[in-house]
């Protein structure tokens, strides 16, 4: 159900004034996209929904802080990513490797295989990555954060970020190959 907010600025202003209809509309506009992000960052569906709820609460709480020319989608994405990071930091299982040696080995691209898998299957593969790799890979490869931004958000060095990204790519390649082989056998 939409309530006729054509302009996102109006919608945000109404949300800031705690207009329930506006909140609902903002939710309906961005919830599917944000839930997709949450699923990529979370290990399980329950975690994804936790991040999703906390993220939207943060969004409504802090909407007035959004800058005038800032893209709301990009801003919301950062909020949800931050919530995901918080969840895993809270569980104290987000340890990031700092092994730059792995950067020397090349990772074979396997985009053809990737295209043969459904988004759901790929999401499952991403979810199976260790926390450290999953988060850095999502942030850099899919969501477009730079290594500098990642290093600041995760409080790690740029080298550590690169190292985890490399590991993530490598692990994903292997998982994609393995999944493809299983499919072929079937």
């Amino acid at each position: 159900m939409t309530t006729g907010y054509l302009d996102t600025g109006d919608l945000i202003r109404s949300c800031v004034r705690n207009d329930t209809d506006a909140r609902k509309e903002l939710y309906e506009r961005f919830a599917p996209k944000m839930l997709s992000i949450c699923h990529r960052y979370a290990k399980t569906k329950i975690d994804a929904e936790d991040i999703f709820q906390e993220g939207f609460l943060k969004v409504f709480e802090n909407l007035k802080q959004i800058k005038k020319n800032e893209s709301i989608e990009w801003w919301m994405k950062k909020v949800f990513v931050n919530e995901a990071l918080k969840l895993y930091k809270r569980r104290k299982n987000l340890y990031l490797v700092d092994d730059l040696s792995v950067l020397d080995s090349s990772v074979p691209a396997n985009t053809d295989l990737l295209n043969k898998l459904s988004t759901m299957e790929i999401t499952h593969l991403i979810q199976k990555l260790p926390d450290k790799m999953r988060i850095v890979f999502n942030m850099y490869a899919i969501d477009g954060f730079s290594h500098k931004e990642i290093s600041l958000m995760l409080n790690i060095s740029i080298g550590t970020s690169k190292s985890n990204l490399h590991d993530a790519r490598k692990t994903l390649q292997k998982k994609i190959l393995k999944l493809e082989q299983i499919k072929l056998i079937r």
Partner: peptide
């Protein structure tokens, strides 16, 4: 370049991906 392609493939895949809550 191969790494970039790999990342781009993922980015493209999730660019418009949505899950209805």
């Amino acid at each position: 370049s191969s790494q970039q392609e790999f990342d781009d493939a993922f980015r493209k895949l999730y660019e418009n991906h949505k899950i209805n809550p």
